[in-house]
Simulated scan of single mutants.
Amino acid sequence: MTRKFNIVLTAGRKKHFSITIIVLVSVVISLLVVSLVLVALGYCLPGRRERKKNDEALQQENGKRQDMRTAESLQFDLGTLETATNKFSEDNKLGEGGFGAVFKGMLINGQEIAVKRLSKSSGQGVQEFKNEVVLVAKLQHRNLVRLLGFCLEGEETLLVYECVPNKSLDYFLFEHKKREQLDWLSRTMIIGGIARGILYLHEDSRLRVIHRDLKVSNILLDNNMNPKISDFGMARMFGVDDQTEGNTKRIVGTYGYMAPEYAMEGLYSVKSDVFSFGVLLLEIITGRRNFLGFHRTNCGPTLIGYAWQLWNETKGLELMDPLL
């Protein structure tokens, strides 16, 4: 009799324990559901949405302030640059392009710099210029020339770059004796470096950048003959969206490197830079210039036309520089 009573009592306790577990689990599930509903309602409430908008606006404002601080930190004093370049003396002149002359200089801390003195004909506004400098300064890649800062003082508009000692690629490529220094291994290394720099600008940088003026004189070589893309004065930058092309009525750049749709219709895109890279590739392989491209003054074929002709005749190897 006692044994039967104990069995019944044990069964009752198990049943009571099971009921307790079920109740606890139900309470926990209910609390989780209520919490999720409250969180969802919190995101849907107008106050929450307003706070979210305010947070985004605050982030944008902080970003602008950060860019202003960055611009201030990048600004050089005119006197400092005049001292560094010996007042832009001809002895320190490295070269000159359509947008101004470049001078070699040295800061008082011993750092070598290259100062580009932009021509006074530029119609770009001060704030627009500063914004562009800040954006370019954020481009960091081993195959891009690094922008160190700028100077806007009086009538002077100056850009300060790292100094790349071996001048530009055309200095070596189109002079017979110097071209001998560019063996096949050196040329393939230069080609690969330029390609990596373009890939970074088009795909991997914070903003998508279309250079619009890729040419041999804008490829600088460091001590180890590694290439660095320079001169972003004509570059166009797009945001982080999917925009990859644009249109302009003002055609800038260098004939001979321009894609047909850009030279004739003002349409530019990442493909425009790839076309220019193709011309660079031909010039590096052949050691010959592409002449004037779409503005030819003679009846001879351009390097592109000559390459196409040999390709159709299955004589592509004849393009190679005889020095190779």
Rank of each mutant, 00 (worst) to 15 (best):
Q127N: 12
I198K: 00
L152K: 04
L303G: 00
L201G: 04
D204E: 13
N143K: 01
W184L: 10
E155A: 13
R69T: 13
G12T: 13
M258T: 03
R187P: 05
T70Q: 12
I229A: 04
V274L: 00
G63Q: 15
D77Q: 09
K4S: 14
H295F: 13
V209A: 10
A84P: 05
L280G: 08
R212H: 03
F17V: 14
T302V: 01
T157Q: 13
G287L: 04
V134D: 04
S168H: 01
L214F: 04
G256Y: 01
D321N: 01
N224V: 12
V39Y: 11
R236N: 10
E283D: 05
K53R: 15
N86V: 11
G256C: 06
G278Q: 02
C151W: 00
G95H: 04
L9C: 12
E112G: 10
S35D: 15
E162W: 02
G63H: 13
Q124G: 09
V145T: 08
L31D: 11
M1E: 12
I198D: 06
D213N: 00
I251W: 04
V34D: 08
R117K: 12
D170C: 06
L185P: 11
L36G: 12
M225S: 11
G110N: 09
T85I: 05
E72F: 12
G246V: 02
D321L: 05
E90K: 15
N86S: 14
V115C: 07
A263F: 00
K53H: 10
E283A: 00
P322T: 07
E50H: 11
R212S: 08
F174H: 06
G256W: 04
N92Q: 09
W184Y: 11
G47F: 10
I194P: 00
T85H: 01
T314K: 15
V270P: 07
L280F: 05
E128F: 09
N298L: 10
L169F: 06
T70R: 13
V270N: 06
V37E: 09
E128N: 03
F291Y: 13
E61A: 11
R236D: 08
K93P: 07
M264G: 08
F294V: 11
V270E: 10
T302L: 07
Y161Q: 06
V160A: 07
K15C: 15
V240L: 14
K178A: 12
N312L: 06
G197L: 01
P227I: 05
P322M: 03
I198R: 01
K87W: 08
M68L: 15
W311L: 09
F150A: 02
S205G: 09
G97D: 05
Q75D: 12
V126S: 09
T83F: 08
K116P: 03
H202Q: 07
G123P: 04
E265S: 13
D222F: 07
F294S: 14
G97V: 03
T10V: 14
K104V: 03
T157M: 14
Q111C: 04
K104T: 09
K249I: 14
E61P: 00
T248Q: 06
L267Q: 10
V39E: 07
F174Y: 02
S205T: 01
D213F: 03
G12M: 15
W311Y: 10
Q140P: 04
A235L: 09
A114K: 04
W308N: 10
D170H: 01
Q181K: 14
G42D: 15
